[in-house]
């Protein structure tokens, strides 16, 4: 019998106006994509607090996707730029924790881009599958090391997050 393929669990945060509608469109158009992504609706990609990502990984997700409107098309004018800035810092922190880059992904998808979103999901699932399970909760000790690290990171983020104009 063939070895069972590793099926990663990926949590995706989709903005209400573009990406969630892209997911709707992918559905309406019956575009099949890998079932490993479970989606959460937020109003804007700018709402995605890095601790959401860390929380998802800490709870056992193997990867996290953040999807928002294209730069310049944000329904809240420019909040996706903030998501973008936050994302690069998030990646930086995850690197510091020894996490592979491909486990997190920032994806632009307009309401018309069902196909693109589905493709991005497929690509990401393949990448994460190739990386293997993250198993953060398992790999780290039970004595709250993950939680502590997350807390520390969240603090760092908060400080570096936004430079007032």
């Amino acid at each position: 019998m063939a070895e069972e393929r590793f099926e990663p669990k990926i949590v995706a945060f989709l903005c209400n106006w573009c990406s969630y509608r892209a997911a709707d469109l992918a559905g309406t158009a019956r575009i099949k994509y890998q079932p490993n992504v479970r989606m959460i609706r937020v109003m804007c990609s700018g709402r995605v607090d890095p601790t959401f990502v860390l929380k998802a990984l800490a709870l056992g997700a193997d990867g996290v996707m953040i999807a928002g409107c294209h730069p310049g098309e944000c329904h809240y004018l420019e909040q996706n730029y903030k998501a973008m800035r936050r994302f690069s810092m998030l990646k930086h922190s995850l690197r510091a924790l020894g996490l592979e880059e491909d486990r997190v992904r920032l994806q632009w998808a307009s309401a018309a881009e069902g196909v693109q979103l589905a493709e991005a999901i497929n690509e990401m699932v393949d990448q994460v599958r190739a990386l293997g399970p993250l198993n953060w909760p398992g790999n780290w000790s039970e004595d709250g090391e993950v939680e502590a690290a997350i807390e520390r990171l969240a603090e760092e983020h908060a400080e570096a997050m936004e430079v007032p104009a």
Partner: peptide, 16 residues
């Protein structure tokens, strides 16, 4: 209601 400020508040004083 975009929530960007909620995510950014270092004191978690903002709730969405």
């Amino acid at each position: 209601g975009c929530g960007t400020c909620v995510a950014a508040c270092p004191a978690q004083a903002i709730s969405g």
